[in-house]
Amino acid sequence: MSDSTPASPTPARSPFDPPGVEWTSVSPRLVRARFVVIGLVLLVPLVAGVVLATLVTPWCWSIVVVVVAVALWSGWLVPRQVRATRYAERDDDLLVRRGIMFRSLVVVPYGRLQYVDVEAGPVATRFGIANVQLHTASPATDAAIPGLGHDDAALLRDRLAARGEARLAGL
């Protein structure tokens, strides 16, 4: 390893940006939906930390500090994550890209789609968004588009189903 300069070559284009692809962003409402979920999850340790700190020992304020730190961190991370989540419909396949730290891009040919799930939890329903999950014969295919508007999700599902049927090719 004489080449000891781990220089990031700053490529002219990102590998996650294939040329000629028009990306569609997911709904920004996903940010608020995720905030609500994170808030609900963090509420329990927060309350527990405050109660223990006032009743038992002031050391328990550290729990509160950690919770607040996590909250701030997700407040910074989640909007960026949601902005990084995009999808694109090409003629023969669907592209989904996600992630900032751990980036991934999945290319799913329509002909390989086995079924499409549209699901929405209680929080997502309140914000009028749904998660569209694509399934091929491979369980490794991790192609989910979170945060589509209800109508968009239904339309996308129907479009995918129609294209999948037109291009279906066994396994």
Binding site: R103, L105, A137
Partner: peptide, 22 residues
């Protein structure tokens, strides 16, 4: 079936990525 491109933080620093065939 489908194809994936993955890149972790270290890989990004080094300008590398892994290709996965599902």
């Amino acid at each position: 079936q489908s194809l994936g491109l993955e890149q972790g933080p270290w890989q990004r620093r080094l300008g590398l990525a892994s290709m996965v065939v599902h």
